[in-house]
Design a protein around this nucleic acid. Structure first.
Lengths: 253, 253
DNA sequence: TTATCTTTCTTTCGGCAGCTAGCAATTGTG
DNA sequence: CACAATTGCTAGCTGCCGAAAGAAAGATAA
């Protein structure tokens, strides 16, 4: 195999697997590890992949760093289900807000084939995910990049959220309680979430089972402000009923 | 077999196999390797295939995202040099704007070790690059995600640029001319560039040699608005002098 | 946390395959 | 036949690969 050909195949391989170790690549292509390292150095120079100690990962916004990645794999299968269900509520021609988060990211992934859709988001990952969707216009709220995530927050975010109106807002949350409603541990992020709720005709909260019934420091909004809650079938019927009693339309998937 | 006929068949063969070695082609067509090399030299000249050490590959195989990746590999080494030089002008404690672009992205890559730096950018790639830099705060201008790039533009971008003031703005450009100054082919992007110039005390333009002396449709700013131009040493001394005569401080690297 | 160990990375070297360039032989053409 | 184009060949140069040593980055244990 040609050196240049191998380099291309390395990029393909890593893109397919999201990541790869130097030794695995050396074995896959039957060359010395030093050769793989040289290839990786060049490929990285070209900005196609990003090297790490021991291997290589895909470069760019669609990639997630470890701490984020870990969060992503927790309840992954459930989040995908929830994301697909949430996406099914979106109609062609809609204007929607997608909040930052791992579950909401899965919504975005199911929206790529929609037509004439406008998405406002404060998450660069969500934006990147929808970037190449031909029927989707993406508006990113400005703001400060939140440490070790791809979320934007602050004055400029709030300004954008005050300037828009959408039919549906999809919010993620670390805690939602049948009595106290939507809650969040970080005060800084509460304003943005409230801005999204105000900007939307219909508020849809997505939350996997680990978030249900949880309390947190700050109240974001009462359950009366939430129209629909989408969660996993794993949530006990009793908890689901409590939210329904509070006037929330609960969908389990 | 005629020489011209063989050349066509070589292209067909390589397209089918994605890549081929010189020896394999020599065997396939029953001619000497030197003959194949001569054919390949011509075929490459015509831009049909790309030669590599040991053989030939299909051009553009690496370009998953043609528009962006293509741009970023062109003049890569020069852009890295320019990026490093530009980054050296940034001091700890600065507030700066970094424009969207492939050259400006290389500036960001050299800023990760700065302390107490605030970066405002309209490029999600630039933001992502500086995301994990402990001493760098990143503010992203909001706006609409520009097709097949990671650039943000529009009303919200302009709003943010009107709301900030920075010591230095680093702008990329597809065309800069000693008489007509900074130019751009797309009207939509002119406003954002002008906003960056207005928001900055000092305007620094980065441009590799291929941009120097070029004309384009819209005037963005006269040379008098530009304080410093950073470009490659490849640029002829005559061109450099023309910009210096126009009052621009030119740095070549 | 600090110290130690292990793995991985960088750098350097030499061997080898492939490349360039020039020349000679062959083939094709008027 | 003369002339040009094409092909084969070779000498010297260049770039690629594997190996090994020292450096750096993680991992482990105290």
């Amino acid at each position: 195999m040609l050196a240049a050909e191998r380099k291309i195949k390395i990029v393909e391989y890593v893109r397919q697997h999201q990541a790869a170790s130097v030794s695995a690549l050396a074995q896959e292509f039957g060359v010395h590890e030093a050769t793989i390292r040289r290839d990786l150095a060049e490929v990285e120079q070209e900005g196609l992949l990003k090297r790490t100690h021991g291997g290589v990962i895909v470069e760019g916004l669609t990639n997630r760093e470890p701490s984020f990645n870990e969060r992503s794999t927790v309840q992954l299968e459930q989040k995908i289900r929830i994301g697909r269900m949430a996406a099914s509520l979106v109609e062609d021609g809609d204007h929607i807000i997608i909040d930052s988060g791992t579950t909401t990211l899965h919504i975005a992934r199911h929206l790529t084939h929609k037509m004439n859709l406008t998405v406002v988001t404060n998450d660069m990952n969500v934006a990147a995910e929808l970037r190449d969707a031909p029927g989707v216009r993406v508006t990113v709220t400005g703001g400060e990049l939140y440490p070790s995530s791809y979320m934007l927050n602050g004055m400029f975010t709030d300004h954008v959220l005050k300037s828009v109106h959408v039919s549906k807002a999809f919010l993620g949350t670390p805690a939602i309680h049948p009595k106290h409603g939507l809650m969040h541990p970080e005060a800084q992020l509460v304003v943005a979430k409230q801005g999204m709720i105000r900007a939307a005709q219909e508020v849809i909260v997505v939350a996997d089972e680990t978030k249900i019934g949880k309390l947190s420091l700050h109240k974001v909004a009462p359950n009366s402000a939430i129209h629909t809650l989408i969660t996993g079938v794993e949530v006990p019927a009793y908890d689901v009923q409590q939210f329904r009693d509070a006037g929330v339309n609960v969908l389990t998937v």
